[in-house]
């Protein structure tokens, strides 16, 4: 084995000998590389790190990480991860999931892991399609998506992972893109450092069943106009030379895109990103082109006591070492039969 528990680790130390079995060109490769590159920078120990996944293409992720890994069943990774954290709160637990796994079959568990604020990192690979079952529409597929199970187009409205996470009471919500190799490590780092449940939605291209589904956001020709990279305390600017920005529409409680220098708009009119503001976060989470850019980066981060904190507090009071004698004979309801 390479590396040691305490020595300097590299991306290679987080790589297993297992052949990666995603389709060539899949966005998952880029995410895997990024995670393997970022973990050494976080100073984590391999033996203290657990990757837990459900079912789907993304769920193969743990096999490729030379940490502890548990590939579980469809949608249930958050519940398994909660049990892991309850048994050993000192472990670093990462959940790797997809849009079907997290938002369809496992929707309930995602809600509750966020609501309880279990101290885990959730990486949600959103490719707006069921890949492993060969291309059916998913809960994040847009209306009209044609797929084997919706030959005439989906008639369902998609769910927003980030908006759902905020609604469930999540205290850390971020979004990034599979190919954003420079920005993603920063977001992973923030997610790791956040105490409590952190949800990172990663827009991920499925080049086989849903190729270019995010090209209206990610294509070089439009990226600068359609991506807003959030920074706490900085104005919500985007576009070439930060020519555009967001403001609250006067007289309405909504965001609008404005151009600096047009209609008397100046830098002073532009909203400042406050990642602790849940109301602002809920507006940023649902922005969509063409009217508004897609918000990328840390949408919301406002730490609160974790589930583990509360559990630990009660257990410390109880101490856990009381004698069996006191359990079986406790109380005053015993009587003795003499021989």
């Amino acid at each position: 084995m390479t590396g040691t528990a305490t020595g300097q680790l590299t991306a290679k130390d987080f790589t297993t000998d297992q052949e990666v079995r995603w389709c060539p060109g899949c966005g998952d490769y880029a995410i895997l590389k990024c995670v393997q590159r970022t973990l050494p920078e976080l100073g984590v120990r391999r033996e203290n790190t657990v990757f837990v996944s459900g079912i789907g293409c993304a769920a193969r992720f743990p096999y490729y990480m030379s940490t502890y890994g548990f590939h579980t069943i469809h949608g249930r990774a958050p519940a398994i991860a909660t049990g892991i954290k309850l048994a050993n709160p000192d472990l670093d637990v990462w959940i790797v999931t997809g849009d079907g796994d997290a938002l369809s079959i496992g929707g309930n568990h995602l809600i509750h892991v966020l609501r309880r604020n279990v101290d885990v990192q959730i990486l949600l690979f959103n490719n707006e399609i069921y890949g492993l079952t060969k291309g059916q529409y998913s809960p994040t597929s847009r209306r009209g998506t044609r797929s084997p199970s919706t030959p005439k187009g989906s008639v369902e409205n998609p769910i927003s992972a980030a908006a759902l996470a905020l609604g469930a009471g999540g205290r850390f919500v971020a979004r990034t893109v599979d190919t954003h190799q420079k920005r993603m490590p920063q977001i992973l780092k923030r997610a790791y450092e956040h105490r409590g449940a952190s949800l990172v939605e990663i827009l991920q291209n499925c080049n086989v069943f849903n190729d270019k589904v995010f090209s209206h956001i990610t294509d070089k020709s439009v990226a600068v106009e359609r991506q807003l990279h959030l920074e706490h305390g900085k104005p919500l600017l985007y576009g070439a030379d930060d020519s555009h920005g967001l403001r609250v529409t006067p007289g309405k409680f909504e965001l609008e895109a404005v151009t600096i220098g047009e209609n008397g708009i100046t830098q002073d009119d532009i909203l400042i990103h406050d990642e602790t503001n849940r109301t602002l976060a809920s507006l940023l989470a649902v922005m969509e082109p063409p009217a508004l850019p897609v918000a990328l980066g840390v949408i919301y981060c406002d730490p609160a006591p974790t589930y583990g904190d509360g559990v630990k507090q009660q257990e410390e009071v109880a101490d856990g070492e009381a004698s069996i004698e006191s359990l079986l004979r406790g109380g005053d309801r015993t009587w003795t039969v003499m021989g």
């Binding site: 657990v50 837990v52 548990f70 579980t72 069943i73 249930r76 958050p78 519940a79 398994i80 991860a81 909660t82 049990g83 892991i84 954290k85 309850l86 048994a87 050993n88 472990l91 309930n108 568990h109 809600i111 509750h112 559990v311 257990e315």
Partner: peptide
């Protein structure tokens, strides 16, 4: 430690996770 889960599936899954981690 007791965990009142969000549903029966989460209940058993949390127990499996706990066993995996040594409880």
């Amino acid at each position: 430690t007791t965990f009142q889960a969000e549903d029966e599936i989460a209940a058993v899954c949390s127990a499996i996770g706990a066993s995996y981690a040594g409880a």
